[in-house]
Design a protein around this nucleic acid. Structure first.
Lengths: 189, 189
DNA sequence: GTCTATACATGGATAGAC
DNA sequence: GTCTATCCATGTATAGAC
Protein backbone atom coordinates (compact mmCIF):
# COMPACT_ATOMS: atom_id res chain seq x y z
CA UNK A 1 0.00 0.00 0.00
CA UNK A 2 1.58 3.28 -1.02
CA UNK A 3 1.58 6.43 1.06
CA UNK A 4 -1.46 8.12 -0.45
CA UNK A 5 -3.40 4.93 0.10
CA UNK A 6 -2.30 4.64 3.71
CA UNK A 7 -3.29 8.24 4.32
CA UNK A 8 -6.79 7.62 3.00
CA UNK A 9 -7.22 4.48 5.09
CA UNK A 10 -5.92 6.25 8.16
CA UNK A 11 -8.39 9.07 7.58
CA UNK A 12 -11.27 6.63 7.10
CA UNK A 13 -10.51 4.97 10.42
CA UNK A 14 -10.20 8.26 12.28
CA UNK A 15 -13.34 9.76 10.77
CA UNK A 16 -15.19 6.69 11.95
CA UNK A 17 -13.74 6.78 15.46
CA UNK A 18 -13.54 10.51 16.11
CA UNK A 19 -15.39 12.37 13.36
CA UNK A 20 -13.96 15.16 11.22
CA UNK A 21 -13.77 17.87 13.87
CA UNK A 22 -12.09 15.46 16.26
CA UNK A 23 -9.43 14.36 13.78
CA UNK A 24 -6.20 16.32 13.30
CA UNK A 25 -3.79 16.13 10.37
CA UNK A 26 -1.09 15.04 12.79
CA UNK A 27 -3.18 12.09 13.99
CA UNK A 28 -3.81 11.08 10.38
CA UNK A 29 -0.11 11.19 9.57
CA UNK A 30 0.95 9.22 12.63
CA UNK A 31 -1.58 6.47 12.00
CA UNK A 32 -0.50 6.30 8.36
CA UNK A 33 3.19 6.35 9.23
CA UNK A 34 3.62 9.35 6.95
CA UNK A 35 5.27 12.70 7.52
CA UNK A 36 3.84 16.18 7.37
CA UNK A 37 5.34 17.00 3.99
CA UNK A 38 4.17 13.72 2.59
CA UNK A 39 0.55 14.35 3.41
CA UNK A 40 0.58 17.84 1.92
CA UNK A 41 2.30 16.53 -1.16
CA UNK A 42 -0.49 14.05 -1.93
CA UNK A 43 -3.45 16.11 -0.72
CA UNK A 44 -4.16 19.82 -0.55
CA UNK A 45 -5.22 19.59 3.10
CA UNK A 46 -7.54 17.94 5.58
CA UNK A 47 -10.78 18.56 3.63
CA UNK A 48 -9.30 17.09 0.44
CA UNK A 49 -8.19 13.96 2.24
CA UNK A 50 -11.49 13.64 4.09
CA UNK A 51 -13.38 13.87 0.81
CA UNK A 52 -11.41 10.96 -0.63
CA UNK A 53 -11.99 8.95 2.55
CA UNK A 54 -15.72 9.67 2.75
CA UNK A 55 -16.28 8.86 -0.92
CA UNK A 56 -14.58 5.53 -0.54
CA UNK A 57 -16.54 4.63 2.58
CA UNK A 58 -19.79 5.60 0.87
CA UNK A 59 -19.02 3.47 -2.17
CA UNK A 60 -18.20 0.47 0.03
CA UNK A 61 -21.34 0.80 2.10
CA UNK A 62 -23.50 0.93 -0.97
CA UNK A 63 -21.81 -2.07 -2.57
CA UNK A 64 -22.20 -4.21 0.54
CA UNK A 65 -25.86 -3.30 0.85
CA UNK A 66 -26.62 -3.86 -2.81
CA UNK A 67 -25.13 -7.32 -2.60
CA UNK A 68 -27.68 -8.33 0.02
CA UNK A 69 -30.59 -6.47 -1.57
CA UNK A 70 -30.13 -8.23 -4.89
CA UNK A 71 -29.68 -11.71 -3.38
CA UNK A 72 -32.30 -14.42 -3.90
CA UNK A 73 -35.27 -14.70 -1.53
CA UNK A 74 -38.38 -12.78 -0.59
CA UNK A 75 -38.27 -9.08 0.19
CA UNK A 76 -38.61 -9.72 3.91
CA UNK A 77 -35.85 -12.32 3.80
CA UNK A 78 -33.50 -9.88 2.11
CA UNK A 79 -34.34 -7.06 4.51
CA UNK A 80 -33.77 -9.47 7.37
CA UNK A 81 -30.41 -10.56 5.97
CA UNK A 82 -29.41 -6.91 5.61
CA UNK A 83 -30.44 -6.05 9.16
CA UNK A 84 -28.72 -9.11 10.57
CA UNK A 85 -25.47 -8.79 8.69
CA UNK A 86 -22.38 -8.45 10.82
CA UNK A 87 -21.77 -4.92 12.05
CA UNK A 88 -19.42 -3.14 14.37
CA UNK A 89 -22.41 -1.88 16.33
CA UNK A 90 -20.60 0.05 19.05
CA UNK A 91 -18.58 1.96 16.48
CA UNK A 92 -21.75 3.01 14.71
CA UNK A 93 -22.28 3.86 11.07
CA UNK A 94 -19.25 5.52 9.44
CA UNK A 95 -21.53 7.56 7.19
CA UNK A 96 -24.40 8.31 9.57
CA UNK A 97 -22.08 9.62 12.27
CA UNK A 98 -20.85 12.35 9.95
CA UNK A 99 -24.27 14.01 10.07
CA UNK A 100 -23.40 15.06 13.63
CA UNK A 101 -20.19 16.79 12.63
CA UNK A 102 -20.57 20.57 12.35
CA UNK A 103 -17.71 21.00 9.87
CA UNK A 104 -19.01 18.25 7.58
CA UNK A 105 -22.47 19.78 7.53
CA UNK A 106 -21.04 23.22 6.81
CA UNK A 107 -19.15 22.02 3.72
CA UNK A 108 -21.38 21.13 0.77
CA UNK A 109 -18.75 18.95 -0.86
CA UNK A 110 -18.10 16.84 2.24
CA UNK A 111 -21.78 16.60 2.99
CA UNK A 112 -22.92 15.48 -0.45
CA UNK A 113 -21.76 11.84 -0.32
CA UNK A 114 -23.37 11.46 3.11
CA UNK A 115 -26.75 12.66 1.89
CA UNK A 116 -26.57 10.69 -1.34
CA UNK A 117 -25.69 7.43 0.39
CA UNK A 118 -28.57 7.55 2.85
CA UNK A 119 -30.98 8.72 0.15
CA UNK A 120 -29.96 5.82 -2.03
CA UNK A 121 -30.39 3.38 0.83
CA UNK A 122 -33.94 4.49 1.50
CA UNK A 123 -34.88 4.41 -2.16
CA UNK A 124 -33.33 1.03 -2.75
CA UNK A 125 -35.13 -0.46 0.24
CA UNK A 126 -38.40 1.14 -0.85
CA UNK A 127 -38.03 -0.48 -4.26
CA UNK A 128 -37.36 -3.85 -2.64
CA UNK A 129 -40.43 -3.55 -0.42
CA UNK A 130 -42.59 -2.44 -3.36
CA UNK A 131 -41.52 -5.49 -5.32
CA UNK A 132 -42.33 -7.75 -2.39
CA UNK A 133 -45.71 -6.15 -2.10
CA UNK A 134 -46.30 -6.59 -5.83
CA UNK A 135 -45.57 -10.31 -5.48
CA UNK A 136 -48.06 -10.58 -2.62
CA UNK A 137 -45.37 -11.15 0.03
CA UNK A 138 -46.40 -8.05 1.91
CA UNK A 139 -49.72 -6.46 2.76
CA UNK A 140 -51.07 -3.98 0.21
CA UNK A 141 -51.53 -1.59 3.14
CA UNK A 142 -47.78 -1.26 3.64
CA UNK A 143 -46.26 2.00 2.39
CA UNK A 144 -42.86 1.17 0.84
CA UNK A 145 -41.24 4.61 1.11
CA UNK A 146 -42.32 5.20 4.70
CA UNK A 147 -41.40 1.71 5.78
CA UNK A 148 -38.00 1.99 4.11
CA UNK A 149 -37.36 5.21 6.02
CA UNK A 150 -38.35 3.46 9.24
CA UNK A 151 -35.98 0.57 8.59
CA UNK A 152 -33.00 2.79 7.86
CA UNK A 153 -33.85 5.00 10.83
CA UNK A 154 -34.06 1.97 13.09
CA UNK A 155 -30.54 1.01 12.07
CA UNK A 156 -29.11 4.50 12.51
CA UNK A 157 -30.95 5.01 15.78
CA UNK A 158 -30.00 1.54 16.97
CA UNK A 159 -26.37 2.56 16.77
CA UNK A 160 -27.11 5.64 18.87
CA UNK A 161 -28.85 3.56 21.55
CA UNK A 162 -26.07 0.98 21.60
CA UNK A 163 -23.37 3.62 22.03
CA UNK A 164 -25.37 5.38 24.73
CA UNK A 165 -25.84 2.12 26.62
CA UNK A 166 -22.33 0.87 25.95
CA UNK A 167 -23.92 -2.39 24.81
CA UNK A 168 -25.27 -3.92 21.61
CA UNK A 169 -28.45 -4.98 23.39
CA UNK A 170 -30.67 -2.02 22.48
CA UNK A 171 -29.50 -2.27 18.87
CA UNK A 172 -30.49 -5.92 18.71
CA UNK A 173 -33.81 -5.15 20.35
CA UNK A 174 -34.60 -2.36 17.92
CA UNK A 175 -33.85 -4.62 14.95
CA UNK A 176 -35.89 -7.48 16.40
CA UNK A 177 -38.69 -5.01 17.09
CA UNK A 178 -38.92 -3.64 13.57
CA UNK A 179 -38.79 -7.13 12.07
CA UNK A 180 -41.55 -8.18 14.47
CA UNK A 181 -43.70 -5.29 13.34
CA UNK A 182 -42.98 -6.08 9.71
CA UNK A 183 -43.96 -9.72 10.19
CA UNK A 184 -47.51 -8.64 10.97
CA UNK A 185 -47.66 -7.22 7.44
CA UNK A 186 -46.94 -10.53 5.73
CA UNK A 187 -49.41 -11.68 3.10
CA UNK A 188 -51.49 -9.47 0.74
CA UNK A 189 -54.88 -7.77 1.33
CA UNK B 1 -30.35 35.55 34.37
CA UNK B 2 -27.03 35.63 36.20
CA UNK B 3 -23.67 34.81 34.68
CA UNK B 4 -23.42 31.17 35.73
CA UNK B 5 -26.89 30.62 34.30
CA UNK B 6 -26.02 32.30 31.01
CA UNK B 7 -22.88 30.16 30.75
CA UNK B 8 -24.88 26.98 31.19
CA UNK B 9 -27.45 28.03 28.60
CA UNK B 10 -24.73 29.04 26.18
CA UNK B 11 -23.07 25.66 26.65
CA UNK B 12 -26.35 23.82 26.12
CA UNK B 13 -26.91 25.61 22.83
CA UNK B 14 -23.37 24.99 21.59
CA UNK B 15 -23.34 21.33 22.61
CA UNK B 16 -26.52 20.92 20.60
CA UNK B 17 -25.20 22.75 17.56
CA UNK B 18 -21.57 21.69 17.53
CA UNK B 19 -21.03 18.91 20.07
CA UNK B 20 -18.47 18.90 22.86
CA UNK B 21 -15.33 18.50 20.76
CA UNK B 22 -16.49 21.27 18.45
CA UNK B 23 -17.18 23.75 21.24
CA UNK B 24 -14.42 25.94 22.70
CA UNK B 25 -14.46 27.79 26.02
CA UNK B 26 -14.06 31.03 24.09
CA UNK B 27 -17.20 30.33 22.05
CA UNK B 28 -19.13 29.57 25.23
CA UNK B 29 -17.99 32.82 26.83
CA UNK B 30 -18.80 34.96 23.81
CA UNK B 31 -22.29 33.54 23.45
CA UNK B 32 -22.89 34.05 27.17
CA UNK B 33 -21.46 37.57 27.14
CA UNK B 34 -19.04 36.53 29.88
CA UNK B 35 -15.30 36.94 30.19
CA UNK B 36 -12.59 34.33 30.55
CA UNK B 37 -12.09 34.90 34.27
CA UNK B 38 -15.80 34.81 34.86
CA UNK B 39 -16.21 31.38 33.40
CA UNK B 40 -13.32 29.92 35.38
CA UNK B 41 -14.64 31.52 38.53
CA UNK B 42 -18.00 29.72 38.28
CA UNK B 43 -16.79 26.44 36.78
CA UNK B 44 -13.57 24.49 37.03
CA UNK B 45 -13.33 24.13 33.24
CA UNK B 46 -15.05 22.95 30.11
CA UNK B 47 -15.95 19.46 31.39
CA UNK B 48 -17.53 20.88 34.56
CA UNK B 49 -19.66 23.30 32.58
CA UNK B 50 -20.61 20.65 30.05
CA UNK B 51 -21.73 18.33 32.83
CA UNK B 52 -24.09 20.99 34.20
CA UNK B 53 -25.43 21.65 30.70
CA UNK B 54 -25.94 17.98 29.83
CA UNK B 55 -27.67 17.21 33.13
CA UNK B 56 -30.10 20.04 32.62
CA UNK B 57 -30.88 19.03 29.05
CA UNK B 58 -31.40 15.43 30.14
CA UNK B 59 -33.78 16.45 32.91
CA UNK B 60 -35.80 18.62 30.53
CA UNK B 61 -36.05 15.90 27.90
CA UNK B 62 -37.30 13.42 30.44
CA UNK B 63 -39.86 15.82 31.87
CA UNK B 64 -41.30 16.69 28.47
CA UNK B 65 -41.56 13.03 27.51
CA UNK B 66 -43.14 11.99 30.82
CA UNK B 67 -45.79 14.65 30.40
CA UNK B 68 -46.98 13.04 27.17
CA UNK B 69 -46.55 9.45 28.36
CA UNK B 70 -48.74 10.02 31.40
CA UNK B 71 -51.46 11.92 29.52
CA UNK B 72 -54.94 10.40 29.04
CA UNK B 73 -55.64 8.14 26.05
CA UNK B 74 -54.69 4.71 24.77
CA UNK B 75 -51.06 3.61 24.61
CA UNK B 76 -50.96 4.07 20.83
CA UNK B 77 -52.48 7.53 21.17
CA UNK B 78 -49.84 8.55 23.66
CA UNK B 79 -46.99 7.13 21.59
CA UNK B 80 -48.40 8.96 18.60
CA UNK B 81 -48.62 12.22 20.52
CA UNK B 82 -45.01 11.79 21.62
CA UNK B 83 -43.77 11.06 18.11
CA UNK B 84 -45.75 13.96 16.66
CA UNK B 85 -44.80 16.55 19.21
CA UNK B 86 -43.04 19.60 17.87
CA UNK B 87 -39.32 19.07 17.37
CA UNK B 88 -36.42 20.94 15.89
CA UNK B 89 -35.81 18.03 13.54
CA UNK B 90 -32.85 19.40 11.60
CA UNK B 91 -30.98 20.18 14.80
CA UNK B 92 -31.44 16.63 15.97
CA UNK B 93 -31.61 15.28 19.51
CA UNK B 94 -29.46 17.25 21.98
CA UNK B 95 -28.80 14.07 23.97
CA UNK B 96 -28.53 11.51 21.17
CA UNK B 97 -25.98 13.57 19.26
CA UNK B 98 -23.57 13.37 22.18
CA UNK B 99 -23.13 9.64 21.56
CA UNK B 100 -21.09 10.61 18.48
CA UNK B 101 -18.69 12.78 20.40
CA UNK B 102 -15.38 11.04 21.16
CA UNK B 103 -14.60 13.14 24.23
CA UNK B 104 -18.05 12.59 25.75
CA UNK B 105 -17.77 8.85 25.26
CA UNK B 106 -14.30 8.81 26.80
CA UNK B 107 -15.46 10.53 30.00
CA UNK B 108 -17.65 8.35 32.24
CA UNK B 109 -19.16 11.30 34.05
CA UNK B 110 -20.21 13.13 30.89
CA UNK B 111 -21.45 9.95 29.33
CA UNK B 112 -23.61 8.78 32.24
CA UNK B 113 -26.56 11.18 31.80
CA UNK B 114 -26.68 10.36 28.10
CA UNK B 115 -26.95 6.63 28.73
CA UNK B 116 -29.40 7.02 31.59
CA UNK B 117 -31.73 9.24 29.62
CA UNK B 118 -32.04 6.93 26.64
CA UNK B 119 -32.32 3.88 28.89
CA UNK B 120 -35.12 5.54 30.79
CA UNK B 121 -36.90 6.46 27.57
CA UNK B 122 -36.88 2.88 26.33
CA UNK B 123 -38.05 1.50 29.64
CA UNK B 124 -40.79 4.07 30.04
CA UNK B 125 -42.09 3.38 26.55
CA UNK B 126 -41.92 -0.37 27.13
CA UNK B 127 -44.04 0.05 30.25
CA UNK B 128 -46.56 2.13 28.32
CA UNK B 129 -46.80 -0.48 25.56
CA UNK B 130 -47.10 -3.30 28.09
CA UNK B 131 -50.00 -1.51 29.75
CA UNK B 132 -51.71 -1.01 26.41
CA UNK B 133 -51.27 -4.66 25.64
CA UNK B 134 -52.67 -5.56 29.05
CA UNK B 135 -55.79 -3.54 28.30
CA UNK B 136 -56.21 -5.28 24.97
CA UNK B 137 -55.32 -2.22 22.90
CA UNK B 138 -52.38 -4.00 21.34
CA UNK B 139 -51.79 -7.50 20.05
CA UNK B 140 -50.49 -10.01 22.59
CA UNK B 141 -47.82 -10.87 20.02
CA UNK B 142 -46.19 -7.46 20.38
CA UNK B 143 -42.98 -7.41 22.43
CA UNK B 144 -42.97 -4.23 24.52
CA UNK B 145 -39.21 -3.92 25.13
CA UNK B 146 -38.25 -4.59 21.54
CA UNK B 147 -40.93 -2.33 20.15
CA UNK B 148 -39.93 0.44 22.55
CA UNK B 149 -36.34 0.17 21.32
CA UNK B 150 -37.59 0.36 17.74
CA UNK B 151 -39.62 3.50 18.46
CA UNK B 152 -36.75 5.32 20.15
CA UNK B 153 -34.36 4.19 17.42
CA UNK B 154 -36.74 5.44 14.73
CA UNK B 155 -36.69 8.86 16.34
CA UNK B 156 -32.92 8.99 16.75
CA UNK B 157 -32.35 7.60 13.27
CA UNK B 158 -34.98 9.90 11.81
CA UNK B 159 -32.90 12.85 12.93
CA UNK B 160 -29.85 11.37 11.21
CA UNK B 161 -31.75 10.92 7.95
CA UNK B 162 -33.20 14.42 8.11
CA UNK B 163 -29.81 16.02 8.68
CA UNK B 164 -28.25 13.97 5.89
CA UNK B 165 -31.00 14.98 3.48
CA UNK B 166 -31.17 18.57 4.69
CA UNK B 167 -34.93 18.09 4.96
CA UNK B 168 -37.47 16.93 7.52
CA UNK B 169 -39.10 14.64 4.97
CA UNK B 170 -37.28 11.39 5.80
CA UNK B 171 -37.90 12.01 9.50
CA UNK B 172 -41.63 12.40 8.89
CA UNK B 173 -41.64 9.29 6.71
CA UNK B 174 -39.85 7.20 9.32
CA UNK B 175 -42.33 8.27 12.00
CA UNK B 176 -45.32 7.63 9.72
CA UNK B 177 -43.81 4.26 8.83
CA UNK B 178 -43.38 3.03 12.38
CA UNK B 179 -46.87 4.19 13.32
CA UNK B 180 -48.21 2.39 10.26
CA UNK B 181 -46.49 -0.82 11.32
CA UNK B 182 -47.77 -0.40 14.87
CA UNK B 183 -51.34 0.07 13.64
CA UNK B 184 -51.31 -3.49 12.27
CA UNK B 185 -50.84 -4.66 15.84
CA UNK B 186 -54.04 -3.09 17.15
CA UNK B 187 -56.43 -5.39 18.99
CA UNK B 188 -55.53 -8.40 21.17
CA UNK B 189 -54.62 -11.99 20.22
C1' DG C 1 8.28 12.31 -2.71
C1' DT C 2 9.76 13.09 1.93
C1' DC C 3 11.93 15.69 5.74
C1' DT C 4 12.64 19.60 8.86
C1' DA C 5 11.86 24.25 10.03
C1' DT C 6 8.86 27.71 10.61
C1' DA C 7 4.47 30.30 11.14
C1' DC C 8 0.43 31.89 13.06
C1' DA C 9 -4.20 30.99 15.13
C1' DT C 10 -6.83 28.58 18.48
C1' DG C 11 -7.74 25.61 22.57
C1' DG C 12 -7.75 25.38 27.27
C1' DA C 13 -6.28 27.09 31.41
C1' DT C 14 -3.71 29.90 35.35
C1' DA C 15 -2.23 34.32 37.75
C1' DG C 16 -2.87 38.34 39.70
C1' DA C 17 -4.88 43.11 39.47
C1' DC C 18 -9.10 45.48 40.34
C1' DG D 1 -16.94 38.34 40.61
C1' DT D 2 -14.73 40.11 36.58
C1' DC D 3 -10.80 41.74 33.76
C1' DT D 4 -6.34 41.49 31.45
C1' DA D 5 -2.06 39.28 30.86
C1' DT D 6 0.30 35.29 30.18
C1' DC D 7 1.23 30.36 29.27
C1' DC D 8 2.04 26.16 26.75
C1' DA D 9 0.16 22.62 23.64
C1' DT D 10 -2.15 21.63 19.47
C1' DG D 11 -4.26 22.51 14.85
C1' DT D 12 -3.38 23.50 10.22
C1' DA D 13 -0.55 24.87 6.87
C1' DT D 14 3.65 26.79 4.02
C1' DA D 15 8.72 26.94 2.67
C1' DG D 16 12.60 25.17 1.31
C1' DA D 17 16.26 21.55 1.77
C1' DC D 18 17.33 16.90 0.37
Amino acid sequence: MDTAERLIESTRALLWERGYTGTSPKAIQQRAGAGQGSMYHHFTGKPDLALAAIRRTAREMRAKAEELFSAPGTAVERVTAYLHRERDVLKGCPIGRLTQDPEIMADAELRAPVGETLDWLRERLAKLLAEGRGRGELSAALDPARTAATIVATLQGGYVLARAAGSVEPFDQAIAGVLGLLAAHAGPR
